[in-house]
């Protein structure tokens, strides 16, 4: 039994890893893990120290007593809580809206026949290669002319456009057996029913991946909120935290506390949906 297991589970790129290979791999992975995690652990350490004590050398890795001042200041004197709520609200709103918009478009592209289908497909592919950072100037004026600058809508509306989501969902829908839709149509389903009762339930993993992808994209965005939002109360987390650094005397303790707390929402999401984050689907997402 154990013999069979080790055979079927055997990694392929190195069929029978020798002891030396295995050891090397573990050393590499341990080193990578240390490099990955150290910055997080270090800001944990600095966030519970007074900023002044940062400059002592050699450093005091684990302070004798925990200093809560940075966190008190973060919630007392900055809009950190608002930034977090804004980011979550906007992220969720965009994710939900984009999910339905993209799924509908992907359904049409994957399952329906219409005039201009090829043109739209090509346009979407081309649009993937358009750098969104290059569009902030015209977007600023478009949003301004709509009177939406400095509002949540300024962040939500342009974010509904990323064509990658449509292409990704299309590839999920294309892989569904066509007979299911044919059968549903013969059973009396309208196209909307085919979409909502057949396609959507069957591409659930794709929808989750799409949602994660969209949320992450929004959660990590920086340039556009920086351009479109002036009011600190309406700002998102990324821009808010970066504004902490613009003071003349930088409060490093405050920044490390903010950075540390800013990792929490996405970490929770990650823990809840780990399976999807680490699955091949996620990587398939970018292949469209």
């Amino acid at each position: 039994m154990s013999l069979r297991r080790s055979f079927t589970n055997r990694p392929i790129a190195s069929l029978q890893p020798t002891g030396a290979m295995m050891l090397t791999a573990y050393v590499v992975l341990c080193f990578a893990s240390i490099v990955s995690l150290t910055p997080f652990l270090y800001i944990l350490s600095t966030s519970i120290k007074e900023t002044n004590s940062l400059f002592t050398y050699p450093p005091d890795w684990i302070p004798a007593s925990i200093y809560w001042g940075n966190f008190q200041k973060l919630f007392g004197e900055t809009n950190f809580a608002r930034w977090t709520l804004n980011t979550l609200f906007i992220g969720i709103a965009i994710t939900l809206l984009k999910l339905i918009i993209d799924a509908m478009a992907a359904f049409a592209l994957a399952k329906l026949e219409f005039f201009g289908k090829n043109l739209i497909s090509v346009a979407l592919l081309l649009a993937v290669a358009v750098p969104v950072a290059a569009l902030v100037v015209p977007l600023f004026f478009i949003i301004r002319s709509m009177g939406l600058l400095n509002s949540y809508w300024a962040l939500i509306l342009p974010a509904l456009t990323n064509p990658l989501g449509i292409l990704m969902l299309r590839s999920f829908i294309v892989s569904l057996p066509a007979d299911l839709d044919h059968s549903a149509r013969l059973d009396g389903a309208s196209e909307w029913q085919v979409f909502s009762q057949m396609t959507l339930p069957l591409i659930r993993p794709g929808l989750v991946v799409h949602a994660i992808f969209t949320f992450m994209l929004q959660y990590t965005s920086f340039l556009w909120p920086l351009v479109a939002i002036q009011s600190d109360k309406k700002q998102v987390l990324t821009v808010g935290i970066s504004s902490l650094k613009s003071n003349f005397v930088v409060d490093w303790g405050l920044i490390s506390a903010a950075s540390l707390l800013a990792t929490i929402p996405i970490t929770l999401l990650f823990l809840a949906l780990q399976k999807y984050f680490l699955s091949q689907n996620m990587s398939g997402a970018i292949k469209g």
């Binding site: 992975l29 893990s33 990590t220």
Partner: peptide, 26 residues
């Protein structure tokens, strides 16, 4: 390396993936 090791693959995957979750700004 991940493909070579037999134990702890998922733990290493999780740790190595973790920084990717953070915004580039952060």
């Amino acid at each position: 390396s991940l493909n070579t090791v037999r134990f702890g693959q998922n733990t290493f995957k999780t740790i190595i993936y973790y920084p990717t979750l953070q915004p580039i700004l952060l």
